[in-house]
Design a protein around this nucleic acid. Sequence first.
DNA 1: TTAATACCTAAACCTTACTTTAGGTCAAGG
DNA 2: CCTTGACCTAAAGTAAGGTTTAGGTATTAA
Lengths: 140, 140
Amino acid sequence: MNQKTFSIGEIAEKYRIPISTIRYYDKNGLLPLIKRTSGNVRIFSDEDMRLLNMIECLKNTGMQIKDIRTFIEWCTEGDSTIEQRYEMFLERKKETEQQIAALQRSLELIDFKCEYYRKAKEAGTTEIPELQNACPPEIL
Amino acid sequence: MNQKTFSIGEIAEKYRIPISTIRYYDKNGLLPLIKRTSGNVRIFSDEDMRLLNMIECLKNTGMQIKDIRTFIEWCTEGDSTIEQRYEMFLERKKETEQQIAALQRSLELIDFKCEYYRKAKEAGTTEIPELQNACPPEIL
DNA sequence: TTAATACCTAAACCTTACTTTAGGTCAAGG
DNA sequence: CCTTGACCTAAAGTAAGGTTTAGGTATTAA
């Protein structure tokens, strides 16, 4: 059961990442499993795609490229780095939860502003008592 | 009832932002209300602090400095820009909700990895059936 | 056989958001 | 008076994360 493989162009389309970005990741050690044809062309396997998915996940939580590379190096080193990887994910979990909490706080203020400007739009001005008095954390 | 005012150093401490960053924001038009002493020293009022708070909020949701400046320009232009400001906050709301959703998706994978590595740590290896078979979206 | 595509590399370039540096002002305390 | 600390500016520098460019290779369709 030999798996299906993909070209960099197919991967770029599938993941909606520029080709140049994928090359950049590869160059920076984020895709150590990639094979090449005799003509030096990259061949992506399912495993590379899973890895790309994990990279996207970690990037999304604000992890830097160099730290993602460190993690991937640990993976290729095998069982001796399980502890570090565990700690890394615990830390990532904590950070991600904090980010979600911070975004939810920001969203509250934004929701308030949406209401504020909806009323202002209705009135044609922000100079009405309803808005002046509703004076929450912010003005403007 | 003249309000209390603050020096840049006090603001930096209160908001835990470097002084250089506050100056950078000011230079880039994010703090158009700031007054100065005769000796050219910045004086921060409550209103400047509220504005800083709003800047932090927008920045937190991924808005760029130049777009925050545009918003602040709209604010100083008065009622003629209510519509734009309303649209901006609706857009910000949408984006922020998407970011939260994306982070929650990432968090699911991270939670899975925490469990995965907790078990691996316990077993001393990732080479156990329990982990091989739990084969969720990702490996590594 | 040639021309279009899709791929390759190295290196230069770019943007964003700051930070650092160099040189100067100003008010208060000793 | 003079020094210390907090402030000021303009301009150069930095880090991260790509993107673009220039020049070249390999496969395929006409």
